[in-house]
Nucleic acid binder design. Structure first.
Lengths: 196, 196
DNA sequence: AAACAAAACTAACGAGTGTTAGGTAGGCTA
DNA sequence: TAGCCTACCTAACACTCGTTAGTTTTGTTT
């Protein structure tokens, strides 16, 4: 019998994913059980299966939602007529804001993707590799056009993306430094370090 | 009955920790079972308990070994008479080399510490916070002495440490870029971005 | 050869895992 | 009102988990 996707169904599914995301981030994918998720949703574990097909499906939904957002933003930036340094800054700011506004989802996509089942795992890694390659091409062009320092593009991209992903550890203690200060200073460091 | 620590005993314990580290890194602490570890050691799971006290103990040993190495290196650098920029460069290079040479251990200390049990968890986080604070003080002094750009010290430290920890994702595909290129270019990016 | 301790083994424990089967209450439509 | 579908429930299955108990093998020392 085919599942009919009603409004109620899809919104409950979204609630489940949202609650699960919180738990996956706090305890890790493996340590967060279906019974844990069910409890925060306010339902028995078995009832979750009226809305989702498996625990894996939740992880897949989260990882690919995030990946798609980054890819489509990149395509938008690539089409723009900005300078290469400006393009990189736009991308860096987008990453930082995603990390601030969609913390749970981005964190999981960064740290729990290894628990994806095949073929989603390979798929995810291919998208990731391709995304980084395209960022590297932007840096390479920026160097060629004398906008940027001669830093090996792969290493520059790795440095930038890793630095941003470390905002995760700021999220746990948001007290002393504001989000604005964080964004402004990290952009300053990463962009001025890249600028010729 | 007190356990007697013979030479054989301690070396077998080290083997167990080494093999476990590999598995913790590959599958995560939660997903790597004692039976997995036992298999790679070439023994039954129950036999592991002749050498270690618990699965947690393995994680503790790894995390604190790494933490202690970083702390004692920092103390050495603090005592040196180098400029502040040079001090930071020394620390950055040390972090990168640790990431290259003790990949498994450093990775686990970076990513699996959340599975530590109390009171080790709090202890670990305190050491981490104190370490970052001391790095921040170096940056703050570097700014005051006009050696460095005025980047919020906490953000600068976060950026540096996160960037380096991202070398993890390079380790998985070591083909195109050599370790030397990686170190040289990352140091260049992080130091020149910091230099006034 | 006898004695001893270290380190391996088998077997099992209690708890927790994702998931399925089968049943029931409540609301919408014919 | 009768039928139907959705979303919940309880109960259970077939594992796997870390760990312990009790026993046997192995290797060294007297």
């Amino acid at each position: 019998m085919a599942k009919i996707q009603t409004k109620k169904n899809s919104s409950k599914k979204e609630i489940i994913i949202e609650k699960a995301a919180r738990l996956f981030r706090e305890k890790g994918f493996g340590a967060a059980s279906m019974r844990d998720i069910a409890e925060t949703v306010g339902v028995e574990a078995a009832s979750l299966y009226n809305h989702i097909q498996s625990k894996s499906e939740i992880l897949q939904a989260i990882c690919f939602k995030v990946a798609n957002e980054f890819i489509s933003h990149l395509e938008e930036v690539e089409r723009s007529g900005d300078s290469l340094l400006k393009k990189m800054e736009t991308i860096i700011r987008f990453h930082i804001r995603m990390m601030l506004e969609q913390y749970e989802y981005v964190y999981i996509s960064d740290h729990e993707w290894r628990h994806l089942a095949e073929p989603y795992l390979s798929n995810f890694l291919n998208q990731r590799r391709s995304y980084r390659k395209r960022l590297g091409d932007l840096v390479e062009e920026g160097i060629a056009k004398n906008e940027m320092k001669n830093i090996e593009p792969y290493v520059a991209v790795l440095t930038i993306l890793s630095a941003i992903s470390g905002i995760e550890s700021w999220q746990r203690s948001r007290k002393s430094t504001s989000a604005e200060t964080l964004e402004a200073n990290m952009v300053k460091y990463l962009i001025e370090g890249l600028k010729k």
